[in-house]
Computed example of a mutant assay.
Amino acid sequence: MTTDFVQRPNVADRRLLLVHAHPDDESLTTGGVIARYVGEDVEVTVVTCTLGEEGEVIGERWAQLAADRADQLGGYRVLELSRALAALGVDGPRFLGGAGHWRDSGMAGTPAAGNPRAWVNADEEEALEALVAVIREIRPHVVVTYDPRGGYGHPDHIAVHDRVTAAVELSGTEDYPEAGAPWTPAKVYWTVTEQSALDAGIAAIGDLPDGWRRPEPGELPSVADDRVTTAVDVSAVLDAKRTAMAAHATQVVLAPGGGQFALSNMVAQPVFAEEHFVLARGELGRVDDSGREDDLFAGIG
């Protein structure tokens, strides 16, 4: 039996849950909103589903930790995530099922994707019950995860989207009674990159560090502007966001000045002072002249 109500919080009692696939995803895509809402006394929880064991390491200092060598990268990335979350003002890290329960799946078609411990191969009931338990424990008013494409198509991101979407629906029912009392979040958002913001950020790229390159047309993922429902200004917390990104040093490098960053492919990407979202569940709250919200909690309360 499903419930047909949505709990409404007091303005001073707001809780935000973000579910990410790997360490660094939280900082790259949602570091600004994490820091902003922590600063507004929102209770923010970040849950990560894997240790990021299959990440490609930048530079030589930690290269031997990689999965095809010592296979110790996941443990080191726990430290990186801890530093990043501290910079954003969040306690943690918190891993779904406990640290190391599920493994980074790597990209589709790689040997890592065949590992029985890989997140893409997780038992669906076990994964859903773990997510439902988190939702019922935290009782978030807003949940943030990826869009159906997983942002850029990573199988782990897609699996997070699918499972979080299902868990949100289940968390308000009487299923999984051992996972806690039912709770229905008021809103679910997908973190996305707005096409015009990406185009503007790329156009603003000047000189790049040696070895970096500009992205090719269409190389970086984005969504059409008219799909974006919510744009959150994070300019006041950009320093915290950049510090968190830099904490993931095996995976991310910032350009001098902090206007761009690159992953192991050394493709320059803009660091956005506004983070974009698509409302996937719930109702739009107050909107501005553009027809968009500027607050993930708009309309709640």
Rank of each mutant, 00 (worst) to 15 (best):
M1G: 14
D4R: 14
F5N: 10
V6W: 04
N10H: 12
V11E: 13
V11S: 10
H20A: 09
A21Q: 08
A21C: 15
D24R: 05
E26C: 08
G32V: 04
V33M: 05
V33N: 02
G39T: 08
E40F: 03
V46E: 09
V47R: 14
T50E: 03
G52P: 10
E53T: 12
G59E: 09
G59Y: 14
E60H: 11
R61E: 14
L65K: 12
A67I: 12
D68N: 15
R69P: 02
D71H: 14
L73W: 02
G75N: 05
Y76P: 01
L81G: 03
A84W: 06
L85W: 06
A87C: 10
A87Q: 09
L88S: 04
G97Q: 10
G98L: 11
R103T: 14
S105I: 05
G106S: 10
M107H: 08
A108I: 09
G109M: 12
A113Q: 13
N115I: 08
N115M: 04
A118Y: 11
W119S: 02
E129C: 11
V144K: 01
T145L: 10
P148V: 10
G150P: 10
G151V: 06
H154E: 09
P155K: 07
D156G: 08
H157R: 09
I158Y: 01
D162M: 13
S171E: 06
T173S: 15
D175Q: 14
A179T: 06
G180W: 14
W183P: 05
P185K: 00
P185R: 01
V188A: 05
W190V: 00
W190D: 12
Q195W: 00
S196Q: 14
L198K: 11
A200D: 15
G201S: 07
I202P: 00
A203I: 09
A203E: 15
D207S: 14
P209E: 11
R213Q: 12
E219S: 12
S222K: 03
S222E: 05
T229M: 07
V232L: 06
V234F: 01
A236R: 13
T243A: 15
A246C: 07
T250Y: 09
T250I: 10
P256V: 13
G257M: 10
N265R: 11
N265P: 03
P270M: 11
P270W: 01
V271P: 03
E275D: 11
E275R: 10
F277I: 01
A280D: 10
R281N: 11
E283C: 00
L284W: 01
R292Y: 04
L296W: 07
F297P: 00
A298G: 08
